Amino acid sequence: MKKKQRFNFRWVIRTFFLTFLLAVIFSIISETLLRKVSIFAAFAMLLTIIMIGIFFDAVGISVAAADEKPFHAMAASRVKSAKYAIMLIKNASKVSNFCNDVIGDIAGIISGTTIGIIVSFFDQYNIPDTYQALIAIGISGLVAALTVGGKALGKEIAIGNAKQVVDFTGRILYYAHLAVQPKTYIGLFKRSV
């Protein structure tokens, strides 16, 4: 008899609302910032958004491709970030979904919005509508090529160096956890009585 596939509907609902919330927050931030900057700063922000999408895509792929065993050895040697790397690998489907789909799609949507804002800068230069349309198409093509090409390169790096990428990500999570919860290292600063 065939085993029934179980779906984690709680994760699906959480992802839905998390994606909505993050998309709204990042859209508000990007809209607010982009309306107040120069065209060159807008292009810099666009490239940053593309790089964030590429980075998270690489993390999602490496987590799915990494082997857990080396991180258990690191944890046994008391490497504190190793437990975060193990947690990432044990939750590979969720981490991959979050990195590749949630962050990746939000980065794509925001980069599209950014292109629209950049094109609106050309209104102040009295460029005819036909040329503005051609510029928008050119920028969209360039952004798509940078995104897809960057993700292709990122995937090659992530698959070939999955352990290093997961280790790096685990370290980031470890230090982020220390920054968010300073009580974990408060014992270092105890007053001697």
Rank of each mutant, 00 (worst) to 15 (best):
K183Y: 15
I89D: 07
S120G: 02
A179P: 02
F122V: 08
A65F: 06
A75L: 14
R10T: 15
G53D: 03
G187W: 14
A158W: 03
S120P: 00
M74Y: 14
L153K: 07
G150C: 08
A23C: 12
T114M: 11
I109M: 10
A133I: 13
V165T: 07
A41E: 13
A73E: 15
I137V: 13
G170A: 07
M87S: 15
P70W: 08
F189T: 10
K151T: 04
I28V: 15
I117M: 12
V143I: 11
I139P: 04
M45S: 10
G154C: 07
K83M: 11
I115H: 01
I29Q: 03
L88E: 02
G53W: 01
L134R: 04
L153F: 13
Q164F: 12
N97E: 10
A92E: 13
A176L: 15
A23G: 15
F20W: 08
Q124S: 15
S96M: 06
G60N: 01
I109K: 09
T32Y: 15
V148P: 00
K80E: 13
F26M: 09
N8L: 06
A42K: 11
A152N: 12
F26V: 04
E156H: 13
V63T: 10
I110C: 01
V37S: 11
R78H: 13
F7I: 12
A41C: 06
A144V: 10
D105A: 03
L88K: 05
I127C: 05
N8M: 06
I61L: 11
I172D: 04
A82V: 08
L178M: 14
K190T: 11
I39R: 11
F168H: 05
T19Q: 07
G116E: 01
P70V: 07
Y174W: 10
V143K: 05
K2Q: 13
F55I: 07
I118Y: 05
A76W: 10
I117E: 03
I106Q: 04
A136W: 02
V102M: 07
V166C: 06
V59F: 01
V12S: 09
L153P: 01
A176Y: 14
R6C: 02
I54L: 03
I117L: 12
I139W: 08
